[in-house]
Structure formats: C-alpha cells, structure tokens
C-alpha cells in the first residue's frame, strides 16, 4: 500500500450557482476525504472564486482528485500547493473561553503568548481571535480546554504559494 499524504489544493472556479456543490459532490461521490474546505470570491470583476481544499490520500488518489477537479466545467485551474513548492497556510479561529479568577488570567496570558487578540469580553468570558497554521490553532485550543473553553469557530485553511508566481 502506498502511504497516505496530506495535500493542500487550490481551485480557481467561476463563481456561479452550484459550483461548490459540484466540488463537494465530487468528493463525496468518489469517496475522497475533505479535511477542510474554504471558498470565497477573489476576483469580483471576473467572478472567480478560490476554493482551498485540504485532503488526504495515496499519491494515485491525489492525482485522481486533481484530474477529477480539472474535469469540472467551471474549474479554471487546479494547483497542488503541496507539490508545487513552498506555500503558506493560514486559518482563523474565534475561541470562546468562560471563567473567572486565576483561570481567566491564565487564558489571557496564554493568548498573549500566541498573539491571539481579545475581540469580545464580559466579566465571565472572552472571545479570542487568532490566526496561524492549523497546528498553532490546535495547540492554543488544547491549552484553553482546561481554562473554560466553551465554543470554537474556525475558517478552515486558506493557502497561497510563496514567491512571485500566481495561480
């Protein structure tokens, strides 16, 4: 058996009705994994959206995923950032922590270390906003667990290649 690899794939698509359903339906219909998926319009003038998918599979499956995505009619370009060289991955999380006393102070202190910002506060809660790699977000969320973590909302990964090349 070939080893399972994790790949981050950027897909440039026409921003038209149903395009996200096509991509998601392709993954569910063919049994591919989606670890995370984000989508937003990135070119208003040309109505193009960028979908970032983090997926995993054997090299043969990853190759299939890219070929199947490329076959969809509204897809302009499929770019395997993992294969194509160094790239940046970022995710944003909003993390709600309830607590008073020492735990509340400790959560603030850790937030400072992770460069998370407080974006909402009551006398018994904080909402932290934090950006970083998925691993960094995981680490922060784990640390908040014993300190009163009650709610998390994450965007999923967005990614872009390093250097001057565009998709």
């Amino acid at each position: 058996m070939e080893a399972i690899e994790r790949h981050t794939i950027s897909v440039l698509v026409d921003n038209e009705a149903g395009v996200l359903a096509r991509v998601i339906g392709l993954f569910s219909g063919r049994g591919y994994n989606i670890e995370s998926l984000t989508v937003a319009e990135v070119d208003m003038a040309r109505h193009l959206s960028r979908i970032t998918i983090v997926t995993s599979g054997t090299p043969m499956i990853i190759e299939q995923i890219k070929a199947q995505l490329g076959r969809l009619v509204p897809v302009h370009r499929v770019s395997d950032l993992t294969n194509e060289g160094p790239h940046l991955e970022r995710e944003l999380a909003l993390v709600k922590v309830n607590g008073t006393g020492d735990k509340r102070i400790e959560s603030l202190r850790i937030a400072d270390i992770f460069r998370a910002r407080v974006v909402d506060s009551t006398l018994e809660s904080f909402v932290f906003e934090m950006t970083g790699s998925p691993e960094k977000l995981n680490a922060f969320i784990n640390l908040m667990q014993p300190l009163g973590l009650v709610d998390v909302s994450r965007t999923g990964v967005v990614a872009i290649a390093r250097g001057p090349e565009a998709i």
Partner: peptide, 11 residues
C-alpha cells in the same frame, strides 16, 4: 482525451 481516466485504475 480525459486526463482523469489516466492512472485511475491501472498505473
């Protein structure tokens, strides 16, 4: 003509 047919079942 379909790149997705290549290496789908048989390398």
């Amino acid at each position: 003509i379909d790149p997705s047919s290549i290496n789908k079942n048989v390398r």
